[in-house]
Amino acid sequence: MQIDLNGRTALVTGSTQGIGLAIATGLARSGATVAVNGRNRERVEAAVTTVRGAGGAAVGVCADVTTAEGVGQLLAELPAVDILVNNLGIFGAVPAREITDEQWRTIFEVNVLSAARLLRAYLPGMIERRWGRAIQIASDSAVVIPEEMIHYGVSKTAMLALSRGFAKDAAGTGVTVNSVIAGPTHTGGVEEFVYQLVDRSLPWDRAQREFMRTHRPQSLLQRLIEPEEIAHMVVYLSSPFASATTGGALRVDGGYVDSILP
């Protein structure tokens, strides 16, 4: 399958590292001009260099999309996009009965409201042009709520609902809106976390498989997912080949969620 996104402009929030950077790189390799977004200018510029080094076209937009002011700044620099990927998200382990109101507000501001603002900002232009793709990066935690961070899980459940609702809003316009349920992924800091739980003398391949076997036994993949594997799904959903896929929650979870449907 040859995916051609030449002539398309994409925005990937939180794309200076991990899954976001992999998505930005994948979209750029397929021909899109990608706006890399983050709050730290040096990290944004470094990510732009990485994407360009992989053979893609990229620009940097340094803006805090968790605030209305930051979104206004983003829109001034990037008034229209064809592909919006709401990847930005935060998490943190907190015992259920100790999650404060402020922690609840913060995680919803970052994980949910930032995506809602950008959908509200960019969908009208997509609908007017009769083509567009909006993709929210959710998590297996949206379905399998983690006891150690239920506020994160609930925010990701909200992302699934957000996508479904905006897909209805864009019905019949040529614009698709979907979410991707990402499973346990090999991102920054995960290797150290794994080695806190398994024998440090094991090589990485064996260590992650031991971690999955003992701590994530639900996974059918039995290894961590690489960010590029999630990016492949996003690139497909961004393409003309996915024109009949909208309002969906597509799983790249390695079989972690023990369900036929999300």
Score class of each variant (00 low, 15 high):
Tyr122Gln: 07
Glu102Pro: 03
Ile127Asn: 01
Ile90Tyr: 01
Asn178Cys: 12
Arg164Phe: 03
Arg117Ala: 01
Ile107Tyr: 00
Ile150Lys: 02
Ala161His: 12
Ala167Tyr: 06
Glu109Cys: 00
Ala93Ile: 10
Ser155Gly: 14
Glu98Pro: 04
Met149Asn: 13
Ile90Val: 15
Lys168Tyr: 13
Ala167Gln: 08
Ser139Lys: 05
Leu118Thr: 04
Val175Asp: 06
Ile135Phe: 10
Gln136Lys: 00
Gly183Ser: 11
Gln103Glu: 15
Leu119Ala: 07
Gly183Ile: 07
Ala96Arg: 10
Ala138Ser: 15
Ala171Gln: 15
Ser179Glu: 11
Gly92Arg: 15
Gly92Pro: 11
Met159His: 01
Ser114Gln: 07
Pro146Cys: 11
Glu148Lys: 11
Asn178Ile: 12
Asp169Val: 15
Glu98Tyr: 04
Ser114Val: 03
Tyr122Asp: 09
Ala171Glu: 15
Ser155Met: 11
Ala138Glu: 00
Leu118Tyr: 04
Ala161Trp: 04
Trp131His: 14
Leu119Gly: 14
Glu98Cys: 08
Ala142His: 04
Leu88Glu: 07
Ala134Ile: 04
Gly183Tyr: 08
Val143Ala: 08
Phe108Gly: 00
Ile181Cys: 06
Ile181Tyr: 03
Ile127Asp: 01
Phe166Val: 09
Ala115Thr: 05
Val143Arg: 08
Tyr122Lys: 11
Ala158Met: 11
Asp169Lys: 14
Ile137Asn: 08
Arg130Gln: 14
Ala182Lys: 04
Gly125Asn: 10
Glu102Cys: 04
Gly132Tyr: 08
Pro95Ser: 07
Gly183Cys: 13
Gly89Trp: 00
Val94Asp: 05
Val110Asp: 00
Gly92Tyr: 10
Ser141Leu: 02
Lys168Gln: 15
Gly165Leu: 06
Asp140Thr: 15
Phe166Ser: 00
Gly174Trp: 12
Pro146Ser: 11
Gly174Lys: 12
Arg97Gly: 02
Phe91Val: 02
Gly172Phe: 08
Ile181His: 02
Ile145Asp: 02
Val180Met: 09
Val112His: 00
Ser139Gln: 06
Ile90Met: 14
Asp101Thr: 14
Arg130Phe: 02
Arg164Glu: 12
Gly125Met: 09
Val180Asp: 05
Ser139Ala: 09
Gly92Ile: 07
Leu118Lys: 01
Gly132Val: 09
Gly183Glu: 12
Leu160Thr: 05
Glu147Phe: 07
Ala171Asp: 15
Val110Phe: 02
Pro124Gly: 13
His151Tyr: 01
Pro146Tyr: 10
Ser139Cys: 06
Ser141His: 13
Ala167Asp: 11
Ser163Gln: 03
Gly153Cys: 03
Leu119Thr: 03
Thr100Tyr: 10
Leu113Val: 12
Ile107Thr: 14
Gly153Thr: 03
Thr157Glu: 08
Ala182His: 02
Arg129Asn: 10
Ala161Arg: 13
